[in-house]
Amino acid sequence: MLKLFGALLILFAGTMLGFQQAARFAARPRQLRQTAHALQRLETEIGYGHTPLPEALTRTSAFVPAPLNRMLALASEGLASDEGLSFRESWERAVREIWGATAMRSNEQAVLIRLGSTLGISDREDQLKHLKLALIQLKAEEDSAREDQARYETMWKSLGVLIAVLLVILMV
């Protein structure tokens, strides 16, 4: 009886583990897309609205889902605080702080941090170019993330169950 219970527990844990991994593969392209949307919105605020950056970040954060909204809000709050941060520092800190909560990888983190070192310190044309560049890079990451999703999502779902089954068989 106890053995059966243990075996069920292992099976359950393995399945969950597999599903969790699969979910990460599914979440990455979705979050990349959301990041791109956020940057597009920022592009509009900068390019057409001439909105000052802190306000543009706050406004954009209201339109994107978690955890990205927190990143934008944190970056904006860092500027308002009296720590004397430059925009680059505030932005980088915000990106790093929320990164653990996202399914995104270091490639896209590097893209965002690089973008942070250019935002706000050049004329409109230049800003739009930098944002476009970041969008293109994120799109490339999104494409590869989709491929990964197609390749590994179902694999991980079944792999979790199968590993659990293997463990159970080995133990019995």
Partner: peptide, 23 residues
């Protein structure tokens, strides 16, 4: 240079792009 950059950021509210007429 770092100080000047920070100063510029603060003077322009981190938004040089919104200050084209002023520049």
């Amino acid at each position: 240079a770092d100080l000047c950059r920070k100063l510029l950021e603060r003077m322009t509210n981190y938004s040089l792009y919104a200050m084209e007429e002023e520049l």
